[in-house]
């Protein structure tokens, strides 16, 4: 029974439905953040408790409106988020959305490098492990993957620092760029904040090199963590597609083994892989917070850690909610990609 419905319209319907699902997802996430953060009481007591007198505290709380009924505050919070307002930090009075604009690019740059590392390391190794399953090669690769996952990213950072700051100091261990390059970059008009792009725009080879050198260790630390996840993911899915009937059928027609692995088995395995890779965005963000702290990479994660130690919970709540929204949007994008890769779009 060939399907009569045209593929195009069902794809659009699916995407439309998926798009509508973003809203409840975001609502659930921001509500969760609100509930969790406001269980403490109010952020002002949390931040200033002990430092100020009770009257001064009360004054601040009333001024900020934290003494009103919690439901009123909740609906105000929802309305604010709906209009794109994620709050203003207590410590330095900055809108959270502006933080995203200032520091988000740095995190994006780190995530970009790390994903490159993760893809280059994880995918071929996963394919190799699946092809050579249950051999010594496979065992070695799996052990590597598990180790990459088992090693906390900040511990990798510490180890890399031990090696590169102390033993063989050839790579910078902190910051996004050297001081001289930073000054050079700051002179650029219409800078994107993505240092590699800016450096290329500047056309200064020394600056490009400096930017890349600074990126090596953080990207390796965060990239290896993700690579371990990718490797395991690719391996498992490839093993299951390599066992499929259609691979046997293709083999019986004399297709070379290399093609079977890299084309016939890889493409169908890609669909579940992309789905899970999308979910790893959350892991990558969590890892980014720790990586940025370890390597003083001044991104959103680094800022979050700073606000955390300053006990600025309004900022924390805003950043966490914002990241949750970003995750929800990314997952939607991933679903679109899956729908485009999978010719069977039938949901």
């Amino acid at each position: 029974m060939a399907k009569t419905a045209t593929a195009g319209s069902s794809l659009l319907r699916y995407l439309g439905l998926r798009f509508l699902l973003i809203f409840p997802t975001i609502w659930i996430l921001v509500t969760m953040v609100f509930v969790v953060m406001r269980l403490v009481g109010d952020p002002i007591t949390a931040a200033q408790g002990g430092k100020l007198s009770a009257e001064q505290l009360q004054e601040l709380i009333t001024a900020a409106g934290y003494d009103r009924p919690i439901l009123v505050q909740y609906f105000e919070y929802l309305a604010a988020i709906a209009s794109g307002d994620f709050g203003t930090t207590l410590t330095n009075n900055q809108p959270v959305v502006e933080l995203l604009a200032t520091y988000g690019v740095a995190t994006l740059e780190l995530a970009f490098y790390s994903l490159i590392v993760a893809f280059i390391v994880g995918f071929p190794m996963g394919m190799l492990a699946a092809r050579r399953r249950d051999t010594a090669t496979d065992a070695g690769l799996r052990l590597f993957a598990i180790l990459a996952y088992a090693t906390p990213v900040f511990f990798v950072g510490l180890l890399l620092k031990l090696v590169f700051a102390v033993a063989i100091p050839i790579l910078p261990v902190a910051g996004r760029v050297g001081v001289r390059s930073e000054i050079a970059l700051s002179k650029l008009e219409d800078a994107t904040g993505f240092y590699l792009i800016d450096a290329i725009k500047l056309g200064n080879n020394e600056v490009i090199l400096d930017v890349l050198q600074h990126a090596v260790l953080p990207s390796v630390a965060l990239g290896l963590l993700t690579a371990g996840v990718f490797l395991r993911l690719v391996r498992t899915n490839m093993i299951s597609t390599l066992n499929a009937d259609y691979i046997d059928a293709a083999r019986s027609r004399g297709i070379p083994e290399v093609q079977l692995v890299t084309k016939n088995a890889f493409r169908p395995a890609l669909i579940p892989i992309i789905t899970v890779v999308g979910m790893q965005i959350a892991l990558l963000l969590g890892g980014a917070v720790l990586t940025e702290t370890t390597f003083e990479w001044k991104g959103l994660g680094f800022q979050l850690a700073e606000y955390l130690s300053a006990r600025d919970y309004v900022a924390v709540q805003g950043i966490v909610a914002l990241l949750a929204v970003i995750v929800a949007l990314t997952n939607f994008l991933v679903d679109i990609i899956v729908a485009l890769v999978d010719p069977r779009v039938k949901f």
Partner: peptide, 19 residues
Amino acid sequence: TALNPVFPIGWQMVQAIRS
């Protein structure tokens, strides 16, 4: 299950012939 779901049938036949 003997046909690969993510490739057009023509692609699968051509791949075999060109091997």
